[in-house]
């Protein structure tokens, strides 16, 4: 009986010991288990380790003999984080390319933590915007770096493209991180089809196209449209990409304040005004003088002069909004 009791107590002791061991493992897993877990996670999921708060703490904890880039994102539809959605495929593309690059995969891991699963991390890091991305450099092993702070990826400066992200990683890890965009066969076929279709259409209506192509009015229209776009600040819009209109407490404003600032709609309004002025000039020069009937001609001249003066004074008014110190005006 005594022996049996001893056996039971030994068994309990053993179980307890194993349990203790397991607890210890859970609290502080060894580097090898971490790496093997990472390897498993990443190979199963095209190179991206989907994290939650616990996993985040585990993989980020020192020591690390690997680099880790962690994207803190928010893909839930109710949060409606457009940049997150924009960057996510690019991030996964780089991760996948890394998987197939033939490099030593244990050098770098890609982690992604969604807001849904990692509120604690967001709270701990005092993050209130997504996406945010941190690079953790290895602390032990041959590639260890002395830097202890994780490096934050600057989305504002570098943007969302996979190429830029990969070059950032290459700089930090020290090996070239490739980007292999998958070949989009569908897009290629559609392009070929469209080109062939267009060529066929061109062949069919060649005489008509030739007529249009050689018509000076076509070219006049193209040139005038280009010029009107340019002189009304299209290139500014193209480079600075301002909002089309601005809504301020429910009120939509079409005009931006400030001399060297404009909205997308605003430049279109201005282009339209210029076009009206220029065409009323042209009507006064070409159309009206050809009218044989004197009453009709008189009416035409008064009409176009009126339109010209009205539009021009509107341009003046618009300009006075942009430049309040401007002293001149025309009627309004």
């Amino acid at each position: 009986m005594a022996t049996r009791q001893a056996i039971v107590s030994l068994f309990i002791f053993l179980v307890f010991n194993i349990f203790l061991l397991a607890v210890c493992h859970a609290a502080k897993p060894s580097l090898e288990t971490k790496v093997s877990a990472l390897n498993q996670f990443s190979t199963n999921n095209n190179g991206v380790v989907e994290l939650d708060s616990d996993l985040y703490d585990e993989f980020v904890a020192k020591p690390r003999n690997y680099s880790m880039i962690i994207l803190l994102t928010a893909m839930e539809p109710q949060i409606n984080c457009l940049p997150c959605k924009e960057f996510d495929p690019e991030f996964r593309l780089v991760a996948k390319s890394w998987q197939w690059s033939g490099n030593d995969l244990s050098r770098l891991y890609f982690g992604s933590l969604d807001f849904k699963k990692g509120r604690e991390v967001y709270a701990k890091l005092h993050l209130n915007n997504a996406p945010t991305m941190f690079y953790f450099s290895p602390t032990t092993g041959p590639y260890a770096k002395e830097v202890s702070e994780p490096d934050k990826y600057e989305f504002n400066r570098r943007g969302f493209s996979a190429e830029e992200f990969a070059s950032y990683l290459s700089g930090h890890v020290g090996i070239k991180v490739p980007v292999k965009r998958p070949i989009n066969f569908f897009a290629i076929f559609t392009t070929i089809f469209i080109i062939l279709g267009t060529l066929a259409v061109i062949k069919l209506i060649f005489s008509f196209i030739k007529k249009v192509f050689q018509n000076r009015n076509t070219w006049a229209a193209i040139s005038l449209v280009i010029i009107l776009m340019m002189i009304s600040g299209h290139m500014w819009n193209h480079i600075r990409s301002p909002p089309y209109v601005m809504s301020n407490n429910g009120q939509i404003s079409y005009i931006a304040s400030g001399f060297s600032n404009q909205l997308g709609m605003e430049s279109q309004i201005v282009a339209m005004m210029y076009a009206i002025c220029a065409s009323s000039m042209c009507y006064l020069m070409f159309h009206v003088p050809k009218i044989e009937d004197s009453t009709k001609q008189r009416f035409g001249i008064y009409l176009w002069t009126g339109i010209l003066v009205g539009t021009f004074s509107f341009i003046f008014a618009l300009f006075r909004i942009k430049n309040p110190g401007y002293p001149f005006r025309l009627f309004i």
């Binding site: 600040g233 290139m235 500014w236 430049s267 201005v270």
Partner: peptide, 8 residues
Amino acid sequence: PTAWPSFF
């Protein structure tokens, strides 16, 4: 780049 007020 040039915004439209500069042209005017």
